[in-house]
Design a binder for these strands. Structure first.
Lengths: 242, 242
DNA sequence: ATGTTAATTTATCGTTTGATCACTATTTGG
DNA sequence: CCAAATAGTGATCAAACGATAAATTAACAT
């Protein structure tokens, strides 16, 4: 879940810096170091814009942080820069480079690798902040989402396709580039998982508790479908209608 | 696609009402009947809010329509009422009651019924306006989306589940209520289709041309998966591992 | 303690935005 | 052809909003 020692500062309760003496559970909250303050603002901006969208007002954000609105402008030149920081924080900062390694670790069965990857990836992207910020960003109309998903395609989809080809003894991606059908199949798996987050955090609907179980099931169905189409079934119990 | 004689008025070119004489291809656009004007505003509001979100400004909307901003307030008491009208127009007005009948028409094979329904339903909900307005609405935080999806559940999901039970000789929904697994499976099909619209209209990504083909494929995979789990396969070529 | 540095606040500016009202001008009935 | 009815506009208000600058006050070094 947490990747770096990035949890920084806990707001709300009195912040005890290296320099300040603790003034006993008071509500004072003044004079953090620039570094602490900036991280605190960034952290609160993530939660704030995830809730209210990027048109949320800086005054309200400041109130949530417990500071005055002009202070925001000491740490960020304008609102747009603050939003840019939110993008970095969530979409760049929460990417785990290990994901790519997990998928192509052929010492493990493919189904296990996919399950491991998707469970962990889902824990990251199926959060209130990730789901909503990504959607707000998409609706805003910039090309950010397209760029992110291009990266997802290059780093994840291509690897999954490659491993599927390998597992089922198909031509390599060099010999035959990923087909639209393959891409759509992988999109389908991705959609099924991501949509759980949309239902939960955007539509406000209840979703199954056992997310890991759901993912395991989706992956099994995914591989079952692939194996049925490919006409081989080494991975699962055989279907072989060929 | 079009359900009623609801296309109303074509803006842009001079509107020729029953009463007005055509002033030759001029750019005049004044004095519609209240009925025409209201419908025109509603129609433009749909496209405007779908593009800019509900925080889009009334002045900009007025400019798109080619009227002054105060005129909006002659036909709608405030912005919120205009937005409410947009909801009615798109989410209520575009619902086709026949959908429910198609699903439960047992004179046809289930796969055909599902394909017919989902192709037509997809044509409705996979539009720029529907996809984006639904997402804007969800992010806004009202319970509208939850209510709509509750309706979708009652009118569609329940019927699909009932027909599946019937097709595979399972207990009726009265005997055994829809299980979470069944609901999730249907959600999965729904998600796979709807997400194509999200990719297209929110992320701005290219999607396959052949939507009907994609839907047919998803339904085949859906039924294949169901039949595999249920352990029967009258519908498809048999798998029967039981 | 005391002065210096700078983190934070108070006050405020210029726009934007939803909404209102008085006025204009087009249509229609007699 | 004229006058009542009303669709539509111009002017403007009050609150909201991003941003700036001057005043304040907390922290640290001496």
């Amino acid at each position: 879940m947490k990747r770096k020692a990035d949890q920084a500062v806990d707001p709300g309760v009195t912040v005890v810096t290296a320099r300040s003496r603790a003034p006993a559970g008071s509500t004072e909250r003044k004079r953090l170091t620039p570094d602490e303050r900036e991280r605190l603002i960034a952290k609160e901006a993530v939660s704030f814009f995830a809730k209210h969208g990027f048109e949320g007002q800086t005054r309200e954000l400041a109130k949530q942080i417990g500071i005055t609105q002009p202070l925001l402008y000491r740490y960020f030149p304008n609102k747009e820069a603050l939003i840019e920081r939110v993008y970095q924080e969530v979409f760049v900062g929460r990417w785990n480079p290990l994901w790519e390694e997990w998928i192509e670790d052929r010492s493990r069965p493919l189904q296990d690798r996919l399950a491991t990857f998707y469970k962990d990836y889902a824990r990251t992207i199926l959060s209130y902040e990730w789901v909503r910020l990504f959607m707000f960003s998409g609706l805003k109309g910039l090309d950010f989402n397209a760029r992110y998903l291009g990266l997802l395609r290059d780093r994840v989809f291509v690897r999954v396709a490659r491993e599927l080809r390998h597992a089922y003894g198909q031509p390599t991606l060099d010999e035959l580039p990923m087909t639209e059908t393959e891409a759509e199949t992988i999109w389908g798996l991705h959609a099924a998982i991501y949509y759980v987050g949309v239902r939960r955090w955007i539509y406000g609907l209840p979703v199954p508790d056992d997310l890991d179980g759901l993912i395991t099931g989706k992956i099994a169905a995914f591989l079952g479908g692939v194996s049925a189409v490919v006409g081989k079934g080494e991975l699962h119990r055989g279907i072989s209608n060929n």
